[in-house]
Amino acid sequence: MSVLKPLIIKEFDHQEDHFRINYVQRNGRSDSCDYHFHDNYELYYLLAGQRKYFIRDRIHLVQKGDMVFIPKHDLHRTRDAGPYHERMLIYFDDAFLETIAGPGNQISPHLLQPFRNNNPVLRLQKEDRRFVDVLFYRILKELEEKPVDYQLYLKALFIELLVYVSRCTEKYVEVEVNAPLDTPTQKKISEIANYIQENYEKSLTLAYLSKQFYISTYYLSRVFKEVSGFSFVEYLNNVRIIESQRLLRETNLPIFQISEQVGFVNTTNFGRVFKQVVHLSPLQYRRMQQATN
């Protein structure tokens, strides 16, 4: 039996150094192509529909008008919560912010506050949502029509957006804007994911975790995948690789020692998994980071 692929109704992608905007309107069920993490910030805005968003160790139900802030190096993935959705993704890094600030100037720490909050999902109140909707539809119009100097205007609109939502997060500080999903099963998987985040260096197996959390191995394997979108091994390996990247960037430890510290049995296996996830060897990644710093 053939499986119908989701229909992409409309899509735009604008990419330049340190800054990218991707818009898609899709009909039909779809999960994001893969789990991932990256060296830049990601801002996700849902213009229509619903999605489930797994971020680090929690799953959130994202609704129309919600904004999601993904910090650098946080593991995440979106999943279906309905047959239709329309969303915009904006990626940027510290170098982009430095070009906006200008030589010798520092970016206000408030500008990145939404990416530092414990809750990554901001549910805008009606008045703020109207304002933000206008900004996003202006961005979409620039992507569609590409008038003269549209690249510059896209950046200006994004900076206006970033300033506005950073003010919103301060204004909403006393408001519970969007709690993670908390069915018993989802809470249990979040507990397990958090345990993996805190104990990745140990020799973790499904059998070990099933004993720790009083769940059968089969049930844990199946439900972890259903809830998070990751298999247990995928999640564990990615948590370990994220930490190994930090050690490669911030220390001079030899690669074999980093491999041991993040929980891999041997350096060969570490190198294979690292390249599978990052598409570079650990040494290539370290050299690339050194060249850009």
Rank of each mutant, 00 (worst) to 15 (best):
M1D: 08
S2E: 12
S2W: 09
L4W: 06
I9E: 10
K10P: 02
D13Y: 05
D17Y: 10
H18W: 02
R20K: 14
G28I: 11
Y35A: 15
H36W: 09
F37N: 09
H38C: 07
H38P: 05
N40W: 11
E42N: 09
Y44H: 14
Y45Q: 03
A48G: 07
G49A: 05
R56D: 11
R56G: 05
D57Q: 09
I59E: 01
H60R: 01
L61H: 02
D66Q: 07
V68T: 14
K72A: 11
H76L: 02
R77I: 15
T78H: 12
R79G: 06
P83R: 05
P83M: 03
H85Y: 13
R87G: 03
D93T: 01
D93W: 00
A95H: 09
A95T: 12
T99A: 07
I100M: 10
A101L: 08
Q106D: 14
P120F: 11
V121N: 00
R123H: 09
R129L: 00
V132R: 01
V134C: 12
F136Y: 13
Y137N: 15
R138V: 07
R138M: 12
K141F: 06
P147K: 07
V148R: 11
Q151P: 04
Y153Q: 11
Y153A: 12
A156E: 08
L157Y: 15
F158G: 04
I159E: 00
I159C: 03
E160V: 07
L162W: 06
L162N: 02
V165Q: 07
S166Y: 02
S166L: 06
T169C: 01
V173M: 10
V175E: 06
P180R: 05
L181A: 10
Q186A: 01
Q186N: 03
K188Y: 08
I189V: 15
N194P: 04
N194G: 12
Y200T: 09
Y200V: 07
E201F: 13
T205R: 12
A207S: 14
A207N: 13
Y208M: 12
L209F: 06
S216R: 11
S216A: 12
T217F: 04
S221A: 07
V227I: 13
V227N: 00
S228H: 01
F232A: 04
V233A: 15
E234D: 15
N238P: 04
I242N: 00
E243M: 00
L247P: 02
L248G: 06
L248F: 08
N252E: 05
P254V: 10
Q257N: 10
Q257C: 06
S259F: 05
G271H: 06
F274G: 09
V277Y: 00
H279D: 10
S281N: 05
P282V: 13
P282N: 14
L283A: 15
L283T: 15
R286P: 07
M288W: 03
N293I: 10
